[in-house]
Nucleic acid binder design. Structure first.
Lengths: 359, 359
DNA sequence: TCGGTCTATGTTACCGGTCACATCACGCCA
DNA sequence: TGGCGTGATGTGACCGGTAACATAGACCGA
């Protein structure tokens, strides 16, 4: 038994298929009586209109496409959830092509799938996009509203939405400086991520402004994860001049680093201060509660979807590229302490001096 | 400038549109020369075939639909990622209707949207489904392959995939018993979640088998989150007979509880042992590393998609409901210690006795 | 040499809606 | 009373593919 069509309903209600269409779409010029008859037929036949046919004839799919890094990454999942909700508000359906780590070749495949499905807008949330110079993407960006998220690729016709990573890196480091720290290390993310580079730039900006500060950059080989943080911290500990504070570019890196420091008998924040980046859900309940910068990924997703879905708010094809940057606010908790000089007596003083020189 | 159609390509290549169709679909009986000419035309016109038109005429959408609880929940995101990957392996595209907390009325809307888009299979991953008795869902389940995930609703014609929560609850509690604990509390999830009820059943199963054991059930009012865990632990501490071990039904509840215990000067696991459920990414790096049961949500998603996408592996409409249950293995880390009797001397003995009585 | 089979290609209908336009009945006003 | 605007409904084409069948050579064996 196949699904009923609009003509089946029409026959049953003894009207034309067009009248049925009018009822479905809530058109005004239909007699209440007719409307009722049609509604009955729809109910009896369990008729569900075909969006497929509708899309073909109206050439509107009410669908937005999003190509994203693996959604099992919490932050991209947040962005997806935000975009999804916002898209729906504008009457769009979001369909997602999620790229698994290691399957980066799929980027093109998924993009193509989305285009074949005639999405009416495109959100590209793949930080290390291989498609940057791809014709398919370039063509898409000129055809439909396109927003690039968390990536610095140049895509004519596309808007960009991103976290202000550089400023975030600057603020994280400045905060450590303000707490009196001078020997401040950073554990970066993988430097092929634009966000990692931007945070590193911010870190350097901050240190540049402070003559006495010493930089120490550790780049983890692999990813943003715990294990990388742990290993990076191990490397820091092997150095003669141990830092008094660490800016870890992700919360997981921070947590991994804390674990490694603990394993070496160091206390956080008493011996070493740590600041993260992300504000993952457990950051708050960790011991110590992690001081970090909150990445508003949900808002990023929402903004991206709004730009794509709402023709009035930008991302119109052909328009020049606009950059929307969202700030990552500092969340102060317990993993950063003022610098303590060796003798207990000097503990508070150092911090006070810093504050004085700042204000 | 509108997208080129198959007939535009045909005109340019001086063949019929059918021949173009043949080339696109890799049909064999086309001269290499013709194929080449068509391919050139496709390239020049930047032709991308319309999946919409294709679906309409072939009545195949190659699309699976998934209705899920908010994907910003890590575990559902995992399930979605698994289902997505598996669906793709079978040549399907997964489209998702994610229900935001508080917008449960959307369940029906999204289900309907999926049906309008003529999905060829359905994955329902909403633990507390309001649609349980809905005609729309019932009709869908008889029409297309349907799998219900992590829910105990009865849906004729649908397969079920779930974690073995009861066994998980049993094993968590048994492990605490095996460590010598007798006063064991549980912090449940919200009891309108089937998984929470099943874990509670498992907990009771375990205690029933041990005459000397004492149960203590705390149900958090709201959710599975940190704050609920914290509050639940507070309530436990207010009781005269303090438990020596706690089975928290989620890792976040566990972490929240640990935070509360610490705030009261209690050490984990020295004063109170805690076991969680989930194995979230940070469980491993927490201090102490959390002993917990790993929920293989990715596998759940994969299995669900496989059942729906592969007609040979079940979920055929009309067939009787099958139940597939995945085990949640125990992951032993550092948040559970053997029961210590007040006097330090007795510490190890208690645990030894238990082990002996068990083997 | 001729019908039969196979290959390459073309022709036409069809999928299930929407769109543009046609039609018809009715009421109103000059 | 006739013309016209308007509301309710119907008709046929069309969206861009696929499916089924038709056709025209080429090859092949009897």
């Amino acid at each position: 038994m196949n699904r009923a069509t609009i003509r089946d309903v029409a026959r049953k209600a003894k009207v034309s298929h067009q009248t049925v269409s009018r009822v479905i779409n809530g058109h005004n010029s239909v007699t209440p009586e007719t409307r009722e008859r049609v509604a009955d037929a729809i109910r009896e036949l369990e008729y569900v209109p075909s969006q497929v046919a509708r899309s073909l004839s109206s050439s509107r799919t009410h669908t937005l496409g999003m190509v994203t890094t693996d959604v099992s990454d919490h932050f991209f999942a947040e962005a997806v959830a935000g975009a999804d909700a916002e898209a729906r508000k504008h009457g769009f359906f979001l369909i997602i092509g999620s790229i698994e780590p290691g399957a980066e070749d799929d980027e093109r495949t998924y993009l193509r799938l989305l285009l074949e499905r005639r999405v009416e807008g495109l959100i590209i949330a793949v930080p290390r996009l291989r498609l940057a110079d791809d014709d398919l993407l370039a063509g898409a960006a000129t055809r439909l509203p396109t927003v690039v998220v968390a990536s610095d690729i140049e895509l004519p016709g596309a808007d960009h939405v991103d976290i202000d990573n550089r400023r975030g890196g600057l603020e994280a480091t400045s905060y450590l400086l303000a707490q009196g720290h001078r020997r401040i290390a950073t554990i970066t993310g993988p430097l092929d991520w634009p966000s990692a580079r931007a945070r590193l730039d911010g870190y350097r900006d901050a240190l540049r402004g402070t003559a006495t500060a010493e930089a120490q950059v550790v780049e983890p080989s692999l990813d943003w994860g715990l294990e990388s943080g742990r290993r990076a911290a191990e490397r820091l500990l092997a150095v003669a001049k141990r830092p008094t504070a660490i800016f870890a570019q992700s919360d997981l890196l921070a947590l991994g680093a804390i674990a490694a420091l603990r394993a070496h008998g160091l206390r956080v924040p008493d011996d070493v201060s740590i600041i993260g980046f992300d504000d993952i859900p457990v950051a708050e309940v960790f011991d110590p509660p992690l001081t970090t910068l909150r990445q508003p990924m949900r808002e990023v997703g929402e903004l991206a979807a709004r730009l794509v879905a709402d023709p009035h708010s930008g991302a119109r094809r052909g328009k020049s590229t606009r950059r929307h940057v969202l700030r990552a606010p500092l969340v102060i908790r317990g993993s950063v302490a003022p610098l303590r000089i060796k003798s207990e007596a000097g503990a508070g003083r150092s911090a006070r001096i810093v504050r004085a020189s700042k204000g």
